[in-house]
């Protein structure tokens, strides 16, 4: 299947490090050419990339085509938004008779948001993983839509209009994140850590089971591996990381609304992963830059840029399925021609 030999692991690592270096140098460069506005845009790209990388774990390695991944981004975002709202109003959040005080402290809020996203992913995963293939696509989409409507119906938190935050979260009491460049580096650091950790994970026993189940579920089951449990663990972990992306997104925009988990965002995440190269972890980062860049450029050309983006997507699916990563860096390591997905 490979038209050319994949690059050696060493060259590959070099390219990845070069990419990281380029991202680290981006803010000073943008300041140098007097376009600091683009730091904000680049931050949004990194956050999108983080969500896409988490989707790549279950999609590219686990073969689970989740069409509801934005739901977990939204849950993480809403935990941040709701806690900040209560902190501002000064009244505690009443949850099943339990008074939770409002909070703005990142060191508590962020892990908490990830945990709530993980629980949401666990519950949705338990039900969705009872099926596979096309059922799985539709069911994840439907549950994400359920959460969307639930949040729209929460009038106490702005309903359709969402919540505006009064500043970003504090870190150990300081307003470190208020600075544009610092926030960029926080996002970059978290993204790098997640990509590295996921890389270790997919090469571990856990990751190999996950990939084995994608390639041949029956074989894995015959070997006595509880496939569904592994998939559920990956789905939950991906949900937690998507929740972190939601936290960052809400901090970046200082605003949260149900739009964050609109189904088109789930579609967008899938597009980013495919565009960049599925099952590569680094590919989705590339994909995020290309998609956001494409949107910026097309939006400059015409107000109706989706009329161009839509057919471009169709063409990518039909003719460029290896993705950018496959193009630039070579086919993925554990290349297999057809992962039919969780079926």
């Amino acid at each position: 299947m490979a038209e050319r030999a994949p690059l050696s692991p060493r060259v590959r690592l070099g390219l990845h490090l070069l990419g990281l270096l380029a991202l680290a140098l981006l803010p000073p460069l943008l300041t140098l050419i007097d376009e600091p506005f683009y730091v904000t845009l680049a931050t949004r790209v990194l956050i999108l990339a983080l969500a896409a990388v988490s989707l790549d774990l279950i999609l590219g390695y686990g073969g689970m085509v989740s069409f509801g991944h934005a739901a977990f981004v939204g849950v993480g975002g809403y935990v941040t938004g709701i806690l900040a709202h209560h902190a501002f109003m000064g009244d505690p959040l009443m949850l099943f008779g339990l008074a939770v005080p409002g909070m703005n402290e990142a060191l508590i809020v962020w892990p908490l948001a990830m945990a709530v996203s993980a629980v949401a992913a666990l519950l949705i995963g338990v039900l969705s993983l009872r099926t596979g293939g096309i059922h799985f696509i539709m069911i994840t989409l439907a549950f994400a839509q359920m959460l969307y409507y639930l949040l729209v119906s929460l009038q106490a938190y702005g309903g359709d209009d969402g919540l505006t935050l009064w500043g970003r979260n504090t870190v150990a009491g300081t307003d470190l994140l208020a600075d544009r460049e610092t926030f960029y580096y926080v996002c970059l650091g978290l993204l790098a850590v997640v990509v590295l950790a996921f890389r270790r994970l997919v090469d571990s026993r856990f990751g190999l089971v996950l990939q084995g189940a994608r390639q041949n579920e029956r074989r894995m089951r015959a070997l006595g591996v509880p496939v569904t449990r592994y998939r559920l663990a990956a789905f939950t972990l991906a949900g937690a990381v998507a929740g972190l992306a939601g936290v960052l997104s809400v901090n970046q925009a200082e605003f949260v609304s149900p739009t964050l988990l609109h189904w088109t965002h789930s579609g967008e995440l899938l597009v980013v992963v495919i565009l960049g190269g599925m099952g590569t972890l680094v590919g989705p980062v590339l994909g995020a830059f290309v998609l956001m860049g494409l949107e910026e450029v097309l939006a400059g050309v015409t107000e109706h840029w989706r009329v161009i983006l839509g057919p471009v997507l169709v063409l990518v699916v039909l003719y460029a399925r290896a993705g950018l990563h496959g193009w630039v860096i070579g086919p993925r390591r554990h290349a297999d021609a057809d992962g039919e997905g969780a079926s």
Partner: peptide, 28 residues
């Protein structure tokens, strides 16, 4: 017709592209 032999993921993405196209086409 080009997608029948492909996996569901490809079908989802291509038809997602069609939705974007048709929605904006209607606005135009």
């Amino acid at each position: 017709a080009r997608l029948y032999a492909r996996e569901h993921l490809d079908q989802v993405l291509a038809t997602f592209g069609l939705i974007l196209f048709f929605n904006d086409l209607m606005v135009i």
